[in-house]
C-alpha cells in the first residue's frame, strides 16, 4: 500500500525528516511515536502534500504510484486521508457544503457520478449519528465554534464519508477527554478492514489502548530508530523516550 524509502524533507530550510523508511501493507495499523520535534506531524503533512514542505530526497510509493509527484488533492482522490491535529475552521461554508464537495470530488476521481443532494443528506445524517454529532452540525460552518472533541469527530465523519484506503491520524488524541477518545477510537476501529490501513501518529500510548496497532515505530530526529510490536509502546510509556536514544547511540 505505502512504501517510504529514505524520505528527507525540509521546512523553512530546516531538515525535519532525515532518511525515513516505512512500509505499510493493506489492513495494517502502524503507530508512530516520538518526542516533540521528532518530525511526527511533518510526516503526515509531507505525505498529504502540504505546500511549504520541501522533499529533498527519497521515494514514496502509494498503491504503485509515485505519491510525491501528485498534487495534494490527487493524493486525497487516490485514497489518502489526513485527519488533522488542528482541524481548520471555515466560517461561512457549511459543513454540508464542504462534505458534499469533498465526496463529489472523490467520487468523480473514481469515475462515479455526484450523489443527489437528497441521498447525500440522508447518508451524512446517518454518519453523524455514528460519530455522535448532532445533525445541526451539518448546517454550521465547517468546524466553526466546535469543541476539540467535536472537531475530531468531524474529522472522523469525513473519514467515514470518503472511505479512504490509507488514513493518517495526526495526534488525534490531543485535546480529547476520555469519552471523546472512546468515541473516536470506536469510529476508527469500525473502519478497520483488511484493505484499509492506518498510520496513527501520537505522543502518548494512551490512544493505543483504544486503537490497537500491529506495529509501533519510534521516530527521533527525523528517522525511525526502533520498531516493534504493541509492547514497545508500553515500554515507552514506562521509560519515556530517553532510553531509546541512548540504546541507539
Amino acid at each position: 500500500m505505502l512504501n517510504i524509502k529514505n524520505l528527507q524533507a525540509k521546512v523553512e530550510e530546516k531538515t525535519i525528516l532525515n532518511g525515513l523508511n516505512l512500509e505499510v501493507k493493506p489492513g495494517e495499523v502502524h503507530a508512530i511515536m516520538g518526542p516533540n520535534g521528532a518530525g511526527k506531524s511533518t510526516l503526515g503533512h509531507v505525505l498529504a502534500g502540504r505546500d511549504g514542505y520541501e522533499v529533498t530526497g527519497g521515494e514514496v510509493d502509494f498503491e504503485g504510484r509515485d505519491l510525491l509527484d501528485m498534487e495534494a488533492e490527487e493524493r486525497a482522490q487516490s485514497g489518502l486521508f489526513l485527519a488533522f491535529q488542528y482541524p481548520v475552521e471555515i466560517p461561512g461554508v457549511s459543513n454540508m457544503e464542504f462534505l458534499k464537495a469533498s465526496v463529489d470530488a472523490i467520487r468523480a476521481s473514481r469515475g462515479q457520478d455526484a450523489m443527489t443532494s437528497m441521498d447525500f443528506i440522508k447518508l451524512a445524517r446517518e454518519r453523524c449519528k455514528a460519530v455522535d454529532l448532532p445533525q445541526d452540525f451539518l448546517k454550521r460552518g465547517v468546524n466553526e465554534g466546535f469543541s476539540g472533541g467535536e472537531k475530531k469527530r468531524n474529522e472522523l465523519l469525513q473519514m467515514m464519508l470518503l472511505e479512504p484506503k490509507l488514513c493518517i491520524l495526526d495526534e488525534t488524541d490531543s485535546g480529547l477527554d476520555i469519552d471523546a477518545l472512546q468515541v473516536v477510537a470506536d469510529g476508527v476501529n469500525a473502519l478497520r478492514n483488511p484493505e484499509r490501513s492506518f498510520i496513527v501518529v501520537t505522543h502518548y500510548q494512551r490512544l493505543l489502548d483504544y486503537i490497537v496497532p500491529d506495529y509501533v515505530h519510534v521516530l527521533s530526529k527525523g528517522r525511525i530508530i526502533k520498531s516493534g510490536g504493541r509492547e514497545l509502546a508500553l515500554e515507552l510509556e514506562k521509560h519515556g523516550y530517553g532510553w531509546i536514544d541512548e540504546e541507539v547511540a
Binding site: 502534500g49 505546500d51 498534487e71 489526513l82 482541524p87 481548520v88 457544503e97 470530488a105 472523490i106
Partner: peptide, 19 residues
C-alpha cells in the same frame, strides 16, 4: 484552509470559490 480543502480532494479552483 486551502490545504484543508485540497486534503479532502477538492481542487484548488473550487476551494478558492468556496473560501
Amino acid at each position: 484552509s486551502m490545504f484543508y480543502f485540497l486534503s479532502r480532494g477538492i481542487r484548488r479552483e473550487e476551494a478558492e470559490v468556496m473560501m
